[in-house]
């Protein structure tokens, strides 16, 4: 009992140290800083922009499905955790059992994947469509392409009799 607690005691030391550092930082800054609030200072910081509306917005329901899938695999990891500690002792049998365990769960993941639950919600921006078709045929440098056109025609057409007509 003492042994286990003292192992977790190390965790507790780190935990206490983290709490003390954060809380101590807040307390010292509270003691040192001047306290003169105004409405500009109290607004939410949004990279210099004026905050618009409330930050409480409704999230997409798809995040909830992903959170549910996360919890399932969270529990799966929990069952594999004791398995991992004795994996070397039991060898192939333990490996096969764990592979079956993961394999059954992968069926569920494959189902969610096929049904499109894992697909990310893409933004669908409304881009204004300009009538660009007429301009697409225009080359980037009109004078250059015209020169090459003339050069390609001239040597061949010089020998031909049809040139004077044009």
């Amino acid at each position: 009992m003492e042994n286990t607690i003292s192992e977790f005691g190390k965790v507790f030391i780190f935990l206490a140290l983290g709490v003390v550092l954060v809380v101590g930082g807040f307390i010292t800054s509270r003691l040192l800083r001047p306290f003169r609030p105004n409405t500009e200072k109290m607004t939410t910081y949004e990279c210099g922009e004026e905050p618009v509306g409330s930050s409480w917005v409704q999230f997409n329901i798809r995040f909830y499905v992903i959170a549910l899938i996360f919890i399932i695999f969270d529990v799966e990891i929990l069952f594999l955790f004791p398995w991992a500690t004795i994996y070397k002792q039991l060898g192939t049998f333990a490996l096969v059992e764990a592979l079956i365990f993961i394999g059954i769960l992968l069926v569920g993941l494959a189902y969610a994947w096929v049904k499109g639950d894992l697909e990310w919600v893409r933004p669908n921006p409304n881009v204004p469509q300009l009538p660009t078709k007429k301009f697409e045929k225009m080359p980037a440098r009109p004078e250059a392409s015209l020169l090459s056109l003339v050069e390609s025609i001239t040597p061949a057409s010089a020998s031909e009799s049809s040139l004077p007509k044009v």
Partner: peptide, 25 residues
């Protein structure tokens, strides 16, 4: 214990988890 005495429950747990995943999704 999970790898010797309780291997079958261990595998059934994975089926239960899969069913939970399917149902939730």
């Amino acid at each position: 214990a999970t790898m010797t005495t309780y291997v079958l429950p261990f595998e059934i747990v994975s089926i239960v988890l899969m069913v939970a995943l399917l149902g939730a999704a």
